[in-house]
């Protein structure tokens, strides 16, 4: 990520930092949202979420640059492909480990992440790419602050996506069925909800969200096979938000983004990269249930 350009005065710098922090935070929030969706539904923690983001960014890049497809079409194709991939992944592999100890699942998704990175480096090469977008390198001056379109696109995209997801989960039958399936698998099954299909759909949505996050992130970052490590920072966001709460994931993401950029600007070198992890450790040590979550002790 580009660091904040030093502004003419302190206020300008701070506003810049806030804008960039919000944008980066939105990405963390989206990836964290993917974690939370899957966790709520199946209690799997998907360590490969960041790598799905990387696949989304690469797929979009491939369509735009290699095949000359328009940006919006490429975005749609990338999201659709990665979402489909997510559903297939669930149906073929992850469904087998539901009910296994959490450790197996963690290792499984770590393994899958490694395979995805390997696949990306073989399919697209291990160079670093930039994705040209309609927002690239444009800025509007608002009240003396240069507002970069790339960052605004991330924020607007995130807000729009969240609105759509909220509407989907609240107002559609499928969305309600998914909520039911994740709250009580067995009861939902008895009510005639195709639970397996719902889980695959949740994986699809979660993978699709990761792909969108990847495409939104691509203009401000660069695309390479290690883009997925952003998922580690998104963990901090998800944990901060309580790991079971969707608004929590977004708030957590934005918080982490802001903390990261401000610590990059005002603390010694090196702090920017670890700020997210320090916050994560502090949250886990002090309030393991996060800002929004609640841990209940096992009933005996």
């Amino acid at each position: 990520m580009r660091s904040a350009h030093p502004g003419e005065d302190a206020l300008d710098t701070i506003l810049q930092l806030v804008l960039n922090g919000l944008a980066v935070g939105c990405i963390y929030g989206l990836v964290a949202l993917g974690f939370v969706l899957i966790y709520k539904a199946t209690e799997l923690v998907n360590f490969a979420q960041g790598d799905l983001l990387m696949l989304g960014a690469f797929t979009c890049y491939m369509f735009v640059v290699w095949y000359g497809v328009g940006y919006w079409v490429a975005l749609a194709l990338a999201v659709a492909l990665v979402a489909l991939f997510g559903a297939v992944l669930d149906a073929t592999i992850l469904r087998r480990v539901i009910g296994q100890p959490q450790f197996s699942v963690v290792m499984l998704t770590i393994g899958l992440g490694a395979i995805f990175r390997s696949f990306a480096s073989i399919a697209w090469g291990s160079e670093i790419y930039t994705l040209p977008t309609p927002f690239s390198a444009r800025a509007t001056r608002v009240a003396g602050v240069a507002v970069s379109h790339e960052y605004v696109s991330i924020i607007v995209g995130t807000v729009a996506l969240c609105a759509v997801l909220y509407a989907f989960f609240t107002f559609t039958r499928v969305g309600l069925a998914m909520q039911a399936a994740s709250q009580n698998q067995l009861a939902a099954y008895y009510m005639g909800i195709p639970v397996k299909l719902m889980f695959s759909l949740i994986w699809a949505i979660s993978a699709g969200v990761a792909a969108i996050a990847g495409v939104l992130l691509a203009p401000v970052s660069l695309i390479d096979i290690n883009l997925g490590f952003i998922g580690l920072k998104a963990f901090a966001a998800a944990v901060l938000g309580g790991f079971g709460s969707i608004p929590g994931a977004l708030v957590g993401g934005v918080t982490i983004g802001l903390i990261e950029l401000f610590s990059g600007a005002y603390l010694p070198q090196g702090f920017k990269d670890v700020a997210a992890y320090v916050v994560l450790l502090v949250v886990l040590a002090v309030r393991p249930q996060g800002m929004f979550g609640a841990i209940v002790r096992k009933k005996v």
Partner: peptide, 25 residues
Amino acid sequence: RFVKKPGLEPGLFGLILVLFILFEP
């Protein structure tokens, strides 16, 4: 050309991990 690609090794590790967890936990 395929086997000399640099990213292959971590992927193989990942694949082995996945196969073990699925088939020989």
